[in-house]
Design a binder for these strands. Sequence first.
DNA 1: TAAAGAAGAAATTTCGAAAATCTGGACAAA
DNA 2: TTTGTCCAGATTTTCGAAATTTCTTCTTTA
Lengths: 229, 229
Amino acid sequence: MTLSDTVYERLRTDIVQGRFPPLQPLRLEQLKRDYGVGFSPLREALNRLQGERLVVSAAQRGFRVRSLSVAEMWDAVNSRILIEAEALRLSIDQGGDDWEATLVASFHALSLIVQRLGTGAADGADTAALEELERRHREFHLALISACGSTWLLDFAAKLNTETERYRVLALRCATLRRERDVGAEHRAILDAALARDPERAADLLDAHYRETGHFLEQVLQDAGTAAS
Amino acid sequence: MTLSDTVYERLRTDIVQGRFPPLQPLRLEQLKRDYGVGFSPLREALNRLQGERLVVSAAQRGFRVRSLSVAEMWDAVNSRILIEAEALRLSIDQGGDDWEATLVASFHALSLIVQRLGTGAADGADTAALEELERRHREFHLALISACGSTWLLDFAAKLNTETERYRVLALRCATLRRERDVGAEHRAILDAALARDPERAADLLDAHYRETGHFLEQVLQDAGTAAS
DNA sequence: TAAAGAAGAAATTTCGAAAATCTGGACAAA
DNA sequence: TTTGTCCAGATTTTCGAAATTTCTTCTTTA
């Protein structure tokens, strides 16, 4: 693990977590001090983040955090539906026993932490638990498509996941309203369809799941926007 | 335009054109001499190329050109079909007069150079003309999907295009057999379906076009493989 | 002979200084 | 007032040396 890799991951999470506001210039001198590294690993990390579309750069003008908007959120959500629905169909077609095993396991791990958070401490307070929730959520959705056999689709899905994660984090920050629908039930339905080897039903459920999440995020962002203005 | 950008583009074309054999380590000292630049712009360019999956890297072990294989080619082709077919449907739905204009224009430009190459000089000799053909071919396919309104789909399509270009270049290098089918007619059929605003027919034709190209590339690669062994 | 280890060579990675470029403001000219 | 130019400070970008790690080769040992 090189310094570049470390800085890359730290910058990545800091951007996804919204530590740097969108469109804010990322000053190298400041990052140098904050992360305690030289220019080289910083610039290498930023160049990689550009490929993931987390930052944008203009020649001689350095790097900025990429913007956020409702329109861009829907672009990411729709693209994600297209790619993950197909990857899920392929996984259902090609996945073996080991795939089913990791699928059930990751769903169970997700259910456990959802239950714990639902019954346990106050919501929003325990950031560590929320990060663990996000991690297991990502693991479950990754497990669904992990047997698709396409490195490109998995690559694209990962990029779109981090992109949409930026919006989920933002929603958690400024969400006063609670989520009405039962996301756990949606996950279970997708799992059931996958285990039943029904590609079309599974893909449709995944589509609806992401679309619902998109509507939820849109509502939160708009409420936050009007509340802020 | 910074030095990093220049080096990035040069490395990119050199890799796509097959100047560096797949899996060969890219020695920084040698690249430094070849391109006449320091370490910094080189490493920045390589980090960006990693995001496009043209090179791979291992910690403390530098960069290598990514491998080529028939299986990976089909992965890229199938992913490309999924993404560009959807982008084409969206373009047909949302494209205006200006879209149709650039579409017709880019098709015409492509037809011109195809005609010139067909009747003109010996095939394979004029590399400049072949590069221009490749450029216009890319322009036409980009024009088809340019009105889709999704930055993510356009981004993915661009990456997959350069990936498949690696195989097209390879095929041009070692192809002794000539291509039987009329690619120009396929392009015209796609153009007609797009102008007729028939999304399903256009998507199906695009699908068949890329699939056919995939079969062609597979055959060339296998022939080259058996001929070499 | 095979395996393990050490020394030397080669390559990558990182750092900070230096060069190149941009930004904003002061000042002059129209 | 507006427009254009030039300078100083700030910032990005590039370079080559130094530090770190990996690879190679030779030697030793069982």
